[in-house]
Design a protein around this nucleic acid. Structure first.
Length: 291
DNA sequence: CGTATTTGACCGGCGC
DNA sequence: GCGCCGGTCAAATACG
């Protein structure tokens, strides 16, 4: 669709970011970075991360492995986490039926046969409000909208975003049992910046591209690491030179009773320097290194 | 032919 | 109470 925006050589994701409507702030000390840990996000000390530091990432893809992965024009990724008060996710599966309950689909009354539509769709809202799962937003400088992350996604919707010329796409993990969803949109401020928001946690190992071999071994390993050792909500990929900061609009303890809507953590990967400084090292679980 | 994407309508929450 | 807007559904369509 709108895949060809001009790539701005230098964007300040940090300053342009605006979502969840919060003020954000970046920080790099242990305390703050630990936030990521709270949600299972951790990053290896090596900038090469799962791919680069891997044994033979390029052995089969050549130096292009990364570019194939995602044409990240610049090493900059931001992770935004948005937690919400899950009102009794008495089953992020059943309650959030809208996520992927096959049965409801038929009853929810399609646009064509719009019956009372009071069935499934209604039941959902009736019982409990929309359930918000933890969300993580990656702000990535990329030419492509859809970044490979080791999982298979099926697009289920697209909407025009207010105040933005770029549409937002909605994807759902193709795994029938997985309720993870993600939104992909471009920053209205910086067309070259792609904002990918993951919601939920994969209940399966990534990789598994059914039709086989679309992702490299390293990607698989990487994704596996994430899913495995840290229970992160979704996979994602890095460019070879990445580092990160951690920021969040208002990571207030639940006690504040205010985090309800959006408590988010942003982790802009801006320069390798920070990596070298050990910023990441602090939040990298040992398990990360050996999967 | 099976699967993925497109696209307009529908639904619900929220602000005014 | 109303309108706006984000999010989702599902039929139609495209694609391999």
């Amino acid at each position: 669709m709108d895949g060809k925006m001009k790539v701005d050589p230098e964007l300040t994701t940090e300053s342009s970011w605006r979502s969840g409507g919060g003020d954000e702030f970046f920080f790099g000390n242990d305390k703050e970075t630990s936030i990521l840990g709270e949600f299972g996000w951790n990053f290896p000390a090596e900038s090469n991360y799962g791919f680069g530091d891997s044994d033979q990432i390029d052995s089969n893809l050549g130096g292009d492995s990364i570019s194939n992965y995602a044409k990240v024009s610049a090493p900059q990724i931001t992770i935004t986490e948005q937690t919400a008060v899950e009102e009794k996710v008495e089953a992020s599966v059943s309650s959030s039926s809208s996520e992927d309950l096959p049965e409801k689909s038929t009853a929810s009354g399609g646009p064509s046969a719009k019956p009372p539509a009071e069935t499934a769709s209604k039941a959902r809202k009736k019982g409990q409000k929309r359930i918000r799962l933890p969300r993580f937003a990656f702000v990535t400088k990329s030419e492509v909208d859809h970044l490979e992350d080791g999982y298979r996604w099926r697009k289920y919707g697209q909407k025009a975003v207010k105040n933005s010329p770029f549409p937002r796409s909605y994807y759902r993990c193709t795994n029938s049992k997985c309720t993870v969803k993600k939104r992909v949109e471009r920053s209205s401020d910086d067309p070259s910046v792609v904002i990918t928001t993951y919601e939920g946690q994969h209940c399966h190992l990534s990789v598994a591209y059914p039709r086989g071999g679309l992702i490299s071994h390293d990607q698989a390993v990487f994704a596996s690491r994430l899913t495995h050792s840290i229970h992160h909500p979704a996979g994602f990929q890095y460019s070879q030179e990445t580092s990160l900061h951690v920021a969040r609009s208002q990571h207030v303890p639940a006690a504040a009773g205010e985090i309800g809507e959006s408590d988010e953590v942003k982790v802009p990967i801006s320069s390798r320097t920070q990596l070298d400084q050990g910023l990441l090292g602090d939040i990298v679980p040992s398990g990360m290194r050996n999967v």
